[in-house]
Protein backbone atom coordinates (compact mmCIF):
# COMPACT_ATOMS: atom_id res chain seq x y z
CA UNK A 1 0.00 0.00 0.00
CA UNK A 2 1.64 3.28 -1.08
CA UNK A 3 2.00 5.91 1.59
CA UNK A 4 0.52 9.34 1.11
CA UNK A 5 1.45 12.47 2.97
CA UNK A 6 -1.21 15.10 2.61
CA UNK A 7 -1.14 18.53 4.19
CA UNK A 8 -4.09 19.66 6.27
CA UNK A 9 -5.22 21.86 3.38
CA UNK A 10 -5.06 19.04 0.82
CA UNK A 11 -6.89 16.64 3.14
CA UNK A 12 -9.59 19.26 3.77
CA UNK A 13 -10.08 19.92 0.06
CA UNK A 14 -10.37 16.20 -0.74
CA UNK A 15 -12.79 15.65 2.12
CA UNK A 16 -14.87 18.63 0.92
CA UNK A 17 -14.86 17.36 -2.66
CA UNK A 18 -16.06 13.81 -1.96
CA UNK A 19 -18.53 14.85 0.73
CA UNK A 20 -20.03 17.40 -1.67
CA UNK A 21 -20.35 14.75 -4.38
CA UNK A 22 -22.17 12.36 -2.04
CA UNK A 23 -24.44 15.10 -0.68
CA UNK A 24 -25.28 16.17 -4.21
CA UNK A 25 -26.07 12.62 -5.35
CA UNK A 26 -28.34 11.70 -2.45
CA UNK A 27 -30.28 14.90 -1.84
CA UNK A 28 -31.73 16.19 -5.11
CA UNK A 29 -34.01 14.73 -7.75
CA UNK A 30 -32.58 15.80 -11.10
CA UNK A 31 -28.99 15.67 -12.35
CA UNK A 32 -28.93 19.43 -12.85
CA UNK A 33 -30.07 20.03 -9.24
CA UNK A 34 -27.55 17.49 -7.98
CA UNK A 35 -24.68 19.21 -9.76
CA UNK A 36 -25.75 22.63 -8.52
CA UNK A 37 -26.13 21.38 -4.95
CA UNK A 38 -22.75 19.62 -5.00
CA UNK A 39 -21.07 22.80 -6.29
CA UNK A 40 -22.87 24.84 -3.64
CA UNK A 41 -21.71 22.49 -0.89
CA UNK A 42 -18.15 22.53 -2.17
CA UNK A 43 -18.16 26.34 -2.31
CA UNK A 44 -19.42 26.53 1.28
CA UNK A 45 -16.76 24.03 2.39
CA UNK A 46 -14.08 26.20 0.75
CA UNK A 47 -15.53 29.30 2.38
CA UNK A 48 -15.42 27.58 5.77
CA UNK A 49 -11.85 26.32 5.21
CA UNK A 50 -10.48 29.71 4.18
CA UNK A 51 -12.63 31.64 6.66
CA UNK A 52 -11.63 29.53 9.65
CA UNK A 53 -7.99 29.50 8.53
CA UNK A 54 -7.88 33.29 8.42
CA UNK A 55 -9.74 33.49 11.72
CA UNK A 56 -7.17 31.25 13.40
CA UNK A 57 -4.28 33.12 11.75
CA UNK A 58 -5.58 36.51 12.87
CA UNK A 59 -6.48 35.12 16.30
CA UNK A 60 -2.88 34.07 16.85
CA UNK A 61 -1.69 37.62 16.06
Amino acid sequence: MPKMNLSHFEASILFALFTSVVLGVITKRTDRERLRYALHCFAYFLLAIFGLSWLMYLGHG
Binding site: M4, L6, A11, V22
Partner: peptide, 19 residues
Protein backbone atom coordinates in the same frame (compact mmCIF):
# COMPACT_ATOMS: atom_id res chain seq x y z
CA UNK B 1 -25.70 7.04 -8.68
CA UNK B 2 -24.45 3.76 -7.25
CA UNK B 3 -21.19 4.05 -9.16
CA UNK B 4 -20.61 7.64 -8.00
CA UNK B 5 -21.35 6.71 -4.38
CA UNK B 6 -19.16 3.60 -4.58
CA UNK B 7 -16.26 5.58 -6.04
CA UNK B 8 -16.57 8.38 -3.49
CA UNK B 9 -16.71 6.08 -0.47
CA UNK B 10 -13.92 3.83 -1.78
CA UNK B 11 -11.60 6.75 -2.61
CA UNK B 12 -12.08 8.37 0.81
CA UNK B 13 -11.43 4.99 2.49
CA UNK B 14 -8.33 4.34 0.37
CA UNK B 15 -6.99 7.82 1.09
CA UNK B 16 -7.43 7.02 4.78
CA UNK B 17 -5.51 3.76 4.40
CA UNK B 18 -2.74 5.41 2.37
CA UNK B 19 -2.34 8.02 5.10
Amino acid sequence: RGAILAASVAIVFLLGLMM
